[in-house]
Design a protein around this nucleic acid. Sequence first.
DNA 1: CGATTCGATCGAATCGATTCGAGTATGCTT
DNA 2: AAGCATACTCGAATCGATTCGATCGAATCG
Lengths: 353, 353
Amino acid sequence: MGRQRRVTLADVAARAGVSSSTASLAYSGAGPVAEPTRQRVLAAAAELGYAGPDPLARSLRQGRTGVVGVVIGERLLDAFRDPVSVALLDGISAELTPLGSALLLLPGDTRAAGQPPERVALYPLDAMVFAGCDDEHPLIAHVLARRVPAVAVEGPRRPELPIVDIDHLGGSRQAAEHLLQLGHREIAVVSLPLTADTRRGPVDPARRAACTFALCRDRLRAVEEVLGPTVRIVETASNLVEEGELAGAELFESSPRPTAVIAQADLLAIGVIRAAAKAGLRVPEDLSVVGFDGIDSSGWLGSEQLTTVEQPMYEKGHVAGRMVAELVAGRRPADVTLPVTFRVGATTAPPAA
Amino acid sequence: MGRQRRVTLADVAARAGVSSSTASLAYSGAGPVAEPTRQRVLAAAAELGYAGPDPLARSLRQGRTGVVGVVIGERLLDAFRDPVSVALLDGISAELTPLGSALLLLPGDTRAAGQPPERVALYPLDAMVFAGCDDEHPLIAHVLARRVPAVAVEGPRRPELPIVDIDHLGGSRQAAEHLLQLGHREIAVVSLPLTADTRRGPVDPARRAACTFALCRDRLRAVEEVLGPTVRIVETASNLVEEGELAGAELFESSPRPTAVIAQADLLAIGVIRAAAKAGLRVPEDLSVVGFDGIDSSGWLGSEQLTTVEQPMYEKGHVAGRMVAELVAGRRPADVTLPVTFRVGATTAPPAA
DNA sequence: CGATTCGATCGAATCGATTCGAGTATGCTT
DNA sequence: AAGCATACTCGAATCGATTCGATCGAATCG
């Protein structure tokens, strides 16, 4: 006996004594079908062990799969460790699930995956979400060429893609002004990665100019507007506490030692605070630290509140999800920029005299 | 002008003056095509703005989409907050990405999604992974009926599904014996959810018997074998630090107050330790706490090490990923049970005299 | 030189459904 | 009883590729 052919809707229809079009209607409910007929079809299906129309064939005909691709950051594992990314996924998912769509997690770094980008673009997708990606992410071109509708979240910033963003400029500016008003003069920035080829360490003007992450660019620009273009920047390789700690350690060994640090993310800020503790520096007495994001830091810092720029993480996800829904429905959604709130916590104070 | 029809491979073939079969070969490389011909096809494609074969049509013909569905726990958001789940996803993804497959995150709780399970089973999938699910998860029946190959990770435990599991029994037994040997007699268990309808609070025998999560069942059974069937159990609603804290608070208000707690997960253990701190109890002097999983707790607990059962989180994911690959290749992989290691940390000690 | 093989290409069948337009029987209206 | 709307069903076209077997000319072999 050879491999038996799969049971198809046509088999079911034949057994029920109806045409396959009628059998299809019995399943989809897209047209009038007499109840007895429907029962006969369902009975025939049960006898043959038919579990319903094949999703692939249906998708091909309808041109819709219910699968929405997501590229989130460069490395998936790092994204999972970042509450902001997770909140984004959750928000998108919350909007899309009721519409019958689910998220396909695509490995952000196709280079690491050892696959050419076009190999990755082979999934049957209704839409794509690029979150926190490089403006030149290799998948973007392929997705656009295939005319798969796509949205960006905080970058990539490209004219073809509608984007949901937050007020990086305003938030960062307030953070910098806050430190300035407290009297700090030696302020350093611990930044997120500037480009997709991750490096770590001090940022010189050439590197600064090469920044391809829109988010990082904006946050740097705002700080430079307030503190001047020569502000000292240390770059991290990823948005992780460990990375913040490395950057912090580097800063505290240098001289003049900064009296305040602007971290471009709360996770980095927490890392900086840890590095400070290890270097014997008290926060905020010896060092002020400002973060960005407004995550729940109680797990990391105990009860002390981080001074930070709160962004609407979930709302961002919900908006992105609704944008995807719009795109799939054939409309082009307008760009959205969500406001942020600067919140003073317990990690900033005037510098020691 | 009406909506123009999409450019298809046939259009490209016509323009290049070849048959569509040849054009297909030019793209897939599945047969010999003369280089000049191939160039002509590619040129025609470029002129028409054709970005390559439609993934859906290709998938239909080949019977393969590269999409692997994952149901991870009951709520996706909780899963993201659990390092063990995240490690699992990462491990699976690491195995599947090189094979050209990506993970489709399915909302675990289809009830919450407000969709009948069959609605959810409509995605074009090559395979499914059920991780930490209820034995009776509604999707399982549908997936099996459709003959989508599936693997289980630590439950559901069903004869139809190959499973990768860890040694829950051995690990939990060692944890219980450790406390017993230290001299503890008032030992309580803080358990993971027993069923999909989440409750919280003390577990009576009826509830105990109704447990549908294989993982939880095994871990309870091992502890009961060592400590007797009357051991006190408090159930949590999810694997979260907050939940552990609630359960701990409940235990410390009761009398006799337990001198030791076996938590079925490290996150719960951390919650219990927090509750202890709030109740003015010192760990391990006034209270011993054992966890399960072996996550990096340094973010939560400072430098003190949790006494816990370490499980190979990543290895579990890798094995699951390889099982999926086997299934997709048409083989049926053997079940795997991975060993665990009991590790004594700083959170257990003999009870106060 | 005839037979064989190989490389390149093509035509047609296939994957498994959905959907559109048409056809038929039935019931209702006047 | 003629006219007409309604409910149901069917056949055929369609979605966009891949793949199998056949064909044909050119190169290789004995």
